[in-house]
Amino acid sequence: MQTKRTVFGNRLLPYAFLFPQLAVTVIFFLWPAGQAVIQSFQREDAFGLSTTWVGLANYADLLHDPTYLNSLKVTAIFAPAVTLLSVGLGLVFAVCLDRLVRGSRIYAALLVWPYAVAPAVAGIMWWFLFNPSIGLLPYLLAAVGYRWDHSLQPTDAMILVVIAASWKQVSYNFLFFMAGLQAIPKSMIEAAAIDGAGPVKRFFTIVFPLLSPTTFFLAVINLVYAMFDTFPVIHATTGGNPAQSTNILVYKVFVDGFIGLNLGSSAAQSVVLMAIVVTLTVIQFKWVERKVNY
């Protein structure tokens, strides 16, 4: 690991500097995470009076729990859908903006601010727009003959949370694609143009392949966002319903642990989620290293 050529010789000072960060990390991150791992091998009786070791039983139960399997399935639809929608729109806006000489700064300014809106607030706003009795969008959908009701229709509820979760993320992806597009050498595009490649062909044979590192990075980041940071969207709008159709994994951990008080199962779910985040983070860092050494 890198340091400076010359360093300060003080022995105690570095520990003093690191102390606050490490104290918070140990007390509020490592210790609770360790507790979750331990609890995932235990089971409490109904009154919380005694705990027994049950080995992997909590994990095995998860595999046979239809609500957990459903939650896995819901997440497997929700997270890729959010990723696809928000990365796709971000790319479209960035590519359009990259074409323009005039007005690009104004467009950029008007597109990035939703990043600042809290997921919970975004959820409530879309929930209002989609309100079955007075909302604008159901009114428009009714005009084409569709009766929207996200409190009863699982598909409608899923569409609602996907849109609400993607909305604020588009601006983030847009910014990264903008940076990626600016890094593409103009000479390469010009050479292709001289060889007779039109704008569409240039995009698919040059621009998009050169953006693939950015796209991959954003895919991972957005999957992490969709799996973990969208808790407020679900909590503020559908609450995982109707019929568990929007009960994503991170929401289920909360419901089982805090409302259901099923600590063993909730802990096992936490550990599974931690494993998923660690995997995604490692993938992302491997990619970053590859880019640096390229």
């Binding site: 210790w31 802990a267 936490s270």
Partner: peptide, 8 residues
């Protein structure tokens, strides 16, 4: 993230 270790 806090979401995955919320109970402990």
């Amino acid at each position: 993230p806090v979401e995955v270790r919320i109970v402990p």
